[in-house]
Design a protein around this nucleic acid. Structure first.
Lengths: 238, 238
DNA sequence: CGGGAATTTGACAATGATCAACAAGTGTGG
DNA sequence: CCACACTTGTTGATCATTGTCAAATTCCCG
């Protein structure tokens, strides 16, 4: 079964270029300055929370396996997922003392915790570490701004196409198959990420399937047959 | 006339806490390490572009007076304004070599340019400067994520209320009147920021006026009469 | 004061939400 | 291993919010 292995990171190489500093997730020991420190590991079951809004932030997390969804809520329950974090990604680089969002495991997830005190030490002793953190935040900001364009100006179909394309490109960057997408999140979670209802997400998956752009092998396994069509749809080109 | 003075920053104190490093905008000279360097100043007329997408980035800008709109476009002309930059704000901290967006003056704007080489020097010689940059980016990321919630999940009325509230709070932070808002941008630009059409923006300004929450002294001058009502509307409470 | 641009208002249409039913997975216990 | 219940996803019908098109009004600025 495809689903069970796809998010397990065959390589734990972070996209963020932080691996020099924080290791590859295979060793519990990371190098800090001229010493070493030990980080702890934690496993979350699907739907378990990593942290809640307003919790005091004492750790920065690195996803080792699985996907974490970070979200914001209105008092009446409307929810906006702000980002998905995949293996290699760091959560909480923008430390402000308290978590400003909720974070939930979307499947079984393994994370490594690094105390913020450790991060602070690195920031003070290793100037290049600060640079890497800046680059990480810059990337996150750019992705979030892209998502603003999706949410503000794209149609439902364009949003779904953009979403699939984003996953495809991440696969490519990580050296995996750009045409076989594994979606560990539910339709509801995709909807909460794209600002759509579950029904609209579902209908537009069907539209893409009917148009021959994708195949739906199972709820979570999507095969992209026509990437360039997906790209055109995502940008609204005709 | 209210309009002509409101955005002129009475105090140029940056929200970002960068004033120690980059000065207050009143002197063309800033201190770098143990030396000094001179920054240049530029004035843009309304609708003039500060930079375009894919331009090589050689400068970081600090807004001194006026407001800059940074936006993203689809090929068919749909536009999403990603952020507004006000006096004190830094533009381009997330330097990636090329500008990823367009930036346009929304009124007459004065900016200060700082060469990225200067910033790089500061990053290498002053560890605390890197910290300040991290804080700046973290704030921007948080604001952008808030905006995701608006665009993805809020109704038109809630979006407009959220927008006005954001300006009111900025005024408060800057020591200005939280109830007298000056909007240098057009309804089109507000729409492009909120993911709405000009007509919907206009209708919802009218709804707020009719409900007695705001007064519209002129196109650009809004008086908030009931901040708590605005807060309730912005969060969709009741 | 006049002219052009920006905004407001109105009528109608369309996209996506809501409500409802059904289907397809998933897991559990017999 | 199957039956049943439960969760998740799909499809259909209808409704509502917001977009589109058009006209009237107001605001600026010369």
């Amino acid at each position: 079964m495809l689903s069970n292995t796809r998010v397990q990171s065959e390589s734990n190489t972070p996209v963020t270029g932080m691996s020099n500093w924080l290791g590859d997730g295979k060793s519990p020991t990371i190098k800090i300055g001229h010493g070493f420190t030990t980080t702890s590991e934690r496993t979350l079951e699907s739907h378990e929370h990593l942290f809640m809004v307003n919790d005091v932030q004492t750790q920065i997390y690195q996803v080792l396996d699985g996907v974490i969804g970070v979200y914001n809520m209105l008092s009446d329950g409307r929810r906006q997922i702000v980002t998905f974090y995949y293996p290699g990604d760091l959560i909480g680089v923008e430390d402000t003392g308290h978590w400003m969002y909720h974070a939930e495991a979307l499947c079984r997830v393994r994370v490594r915790s690094i105390p913020v005190t450790t991060i602070d030490t690195l920031l003070h002793t290793e100037p290049r570490f600060g640079q890497a953190m800046l680059a990480t935040l810059a990337t996150e900001l750019a992705e979030t701004r892209d998502q603003l364009l999706s949410l503000g100006r794209k149609s439902a179909l364009e949003k779904v196409a953009t979403f699939l394309l984003r996953i495809s490109r991440r696969n490519q960057r990580e050296g995996r198959d750009a045409k076989q997408l594994y979606l560990p999140m539910t339709r509801t979670e995709i909807g909460d990420y794209l600002g759509l209802t579950i029904e609209t997400v579902s209908r537009n998956f069907t539209r893409l399937k009917t148009a021959g752009v994708i195949k739906l092998h199972s709820k979570s396994d999507v095969q992209v047959d026509d990437i360039s069509a997906l790209e055109k749809l995502a940008e609204g080109d005709q």
